[in-house]
Simulated scan of single mutants.
Amino acid sequence: MLILGLDQSITRTGFALYEFPGDERHMRCGSFSCKDGADPEEKCELFARQFKRLVGPKERRPDFICWERARRIISAYPKKPNPDLLGLGGDDPPVWTVNADQLLLQEIQGIIRGEAISYRIPHESVTPATWRAAIYGKGGGKLSRADAKAQAKAYCKALGVDAGNEDEAEAACIARWAATCSQQFRLLAAGVAA
Rank of each mutant, 00 (worst) to 15 (best):
T127E: 10
L2K: 08
L104M: 09
P83C: 03
K149F: 03
S118D: 10
P57R: 09
F32M: 01
A48S: 15
L86N: 03
V192R: 06
D162N: 13
W177T: 01
D39Y: 06
A129G: 07
E115K: 12
I135F: 02
S31Q: 05
G37I: 07
S125Q: 07
D167Y: 07
P40W: 07
D162P: 13
Y136N: 00
C66Y: 00
P78G: 14
V95A: 02
P81F: 08
D23Y: 02
G164E: 13
A172C: 09
A150F: 02
C44H: 04
G22D: 05
R60M: 05
V161P: 13
S75G: 14
K157D: 12
S9F: 14
D39Q: 05
L6S: 14
S144L: 01
N165M: 01
A16R: 02
K149W: 01
D167M: 05
D101Q: 07
P78E: 15
E45W: 00
I174Y: 01
N99I: 15
P62I: 00
R61T: 04
I73L: 14
L105G: 00
K80A: 12
K79S: 14
W67G: 09
D39C: 04
V126D: 06
L143N: 00
C66R: 00
I121S: 07
D162S: 12
D39R: 02
A194D: 03
D101A: 04
Y18Q: 11
R132V: 09
F32A: 03
I174V: 11
P40Y: 08
E170T: 06
W131Q: 11
T127Y: 03
T11E: 15
S182W: 09
M1H: 02
G89E: 02
L17W: 08
R61M: 07
V161K: 11
D63R: 11
Y119C: 04
C156G: 12
K35S: 11
T11V: 14
S31F: 01
Q106P: 04
G22Q: 05
N82L: 09
L54E: 10
D84F: 13
N82S: 08
E41N: 15
E42T: 09
N82P: 02
A148R: 00
E45G: 01
R71Y: 14
P93L: 01
N82V: 10
C29T: 08
S182V: 06
L4R: 10
R69D: 15
R53N: 14
A134V: 02
T130V: 09
A178P: 04
A150L: 00
L143M: 03
T180I: 00
K43E: 05
Y136H: 02
W131V: 10
A148L: 03
N82Y: 07
L17N: 12
G37A: 07
H26Y: 10
L187T: 12
L86I: 10
L6V: 13
Q184E: 11
P62R: 01
I3R: 03
A48K: 15
W96R: 11
R49P: 15
D147F: 03
N99W: 15
W67I: 04
A194I: 05
F32W: 02
D162Y: 11
K58T: 14
D36T: 13
A38R: 11
F51R: 14
A179Y: 00
E124D: 06
A178E: 02
E124P: 01
